[in-house]
Amino acid sequence: MWRFTVLRVLQAIPVILTVITLTFFLIRAAPGGPFSSEKAVSPQVQAALEARYRLDQPILQQYFSYLADLAHGDLGPTFRYPGRTVDELILDGLPITAELGFYALMIALVLGVTAGVVASLKPNTLQDYVPMGAAMVGICMPSFLLGPLLVLVFGIWLQWLPVSGWGSTPGDKLLPSITLGAMYAGYIARLSRAGMLEVLSQDYLRTARAKGLPEYVVILKHALRGGLLPVVSYLGPAFAYLLSGSFVVETIFQIPGLGRFYIQAAFNRDYTMILGTTVFLATLIVVFNLLSDIAATWLNPRLRYQYKQ
């Protein structure tokens, strides 16, 4: 197991390095820079700024000094928020985004697995079509449509829940979490339905029934473990995407999370901020993929055994 983990971590390094390099050169290739604006700036000020942010150095030298800083965990100063570093901004936004992502994932898991399992028990009947139809709607509906719709119904018509904010009024975390989790609930429902259908046709379930086990034991004890393996493999990447893809929801509901910075940084040509968030999210995606691989391996006795050797 350790060998496997170390190996996978080593494999992640070239991936992250590629992401850094590509992002670094691509944003510099884009027209404009962090300090180009309509407002005329005197050449001296411009030069001073560029010197302060190392923009006067040759581009390769900028690249390597960025890597050197990164190796110490320093993502550099931001270009647009004077006096603050990228590390600070990310650490400010991350807990909120992570909390939102966590709630969304929990909602997605509970809804998705329930819908998928219920659908798989009676395939091609109403019991299958209704939850799977709902899952399809969840997948197709973009969050910029679902969010306002939910706000309209629950916030404005029914007035059950606050329309925006995060942690300021009770219940204001519910709508954003549902909005963000809906699509993932749909995916998880489809994955668990497919996984369960596969397992439900296996001979060992017939063996379990032949022992006289009641149907709910057959499903919960014998079928669920194998049937939900695909969902487990999906959870890691899903959480990483939840973190990196939450900016729409954060914008709709005015949540001070990570997503806001990401979008603003791109518009501002804030080189270090773009790089910093990209590297950070890429690392998250790699790490969560790794975690779900480990979980899936651990759940499958055969793979567990192989790595023990």
Binding site: D203, Y204, R225, G226
Partner: peptide, 12 residues
């Protein structure tokens, strides 16, 4: 059952 390869639960 016929096939001992598939009639035991691989996860238990």
């Amino acid at each position: 059952f016929q096939d001992p390869m598939t009639s035991l639960n691989p996860y238990m």
